[in-house]
C-alpha cells in the first residue's frame, strides 16, 4: 500500500511538472517522506527523480517551439551557481523563516496571476 501510494505520487508529480512547468517537487517530497525517507533524503531524492521528468518535458516543449535554448541560456550560469549553493546548504537546513517568506511570495503571485 505504501509502495503504491509512493508510485502514484510519482505519476502526479510528472503531470504537474509537465503541465505547469514546476511543482513536481511539491508532490514528490511528501510522497517520498511517506515512503519512509528522512526529510533531507526526500528532498535530495526528489531532485534525482524530477531530473528525468524535466528532461522529457523540456524536450517536448522545445520540439513544440514553446521555448528556445536562447530564451533560457542567460539564466543558466546563475541557476547553476544557485543550485550548487542550495546543495551545500540542504544538509544543514530547514529554515522555517525562509519557507514562510517564500510562502507569502507565492500567495502574492497566485493572487496577481489569477487577477490578470
Amino acid at each position: 500500500m505504501k509502495k503504491l501510494l509512493t508510485l502514484v505520487g510519482g505519476f502526479f508529480s510528472g503531470i504537474a511538472n509537465g503541465l505547469l512547468g514546476a511543482g513536481g517537487g511539491m508532490i514528490a517530497v511528501p510522497a517520498l517522506r511517506r515512503a519512509g525517507l528522512s526529510t533531507v533524503e526526500s528532498h535530495a531524492t526528489s531532485v534525482a527523480v524530477i531530473l528525468p521528468l524535466c528532461a522529457l518535458s523540456a524536450g517536448i516543449y522545445l520540439a513544440r517551439g514553446d521555448v528556445t535554448l536562447h530564451d533560457a541560456l542567460p539564466y543558466l550560469p546563475w541557476m547553476i551557481a544557485g543550485s550548487l549553493l542550495g546543495a551545500k546548504i540542504l544538509p544543514r537546513l530547514s529554515s522555517t523563516v525562509l519557507r514562510r517568506m517564500f510562502g507569502v511570495l507565492m500567495l502574492w503571485a497566485a493572487w496577481r496571476m489569477f487577477a490578470a
Partner: peptide, 14 residues
Amino acid sequence: AGLGSGALGAMGMG
C-alpha cells in the same frame, strides 16, 4: 532570480 530559484530548486523547495 536565477540564483534564488537554483538554490531553492536544489533543495527541493519549489
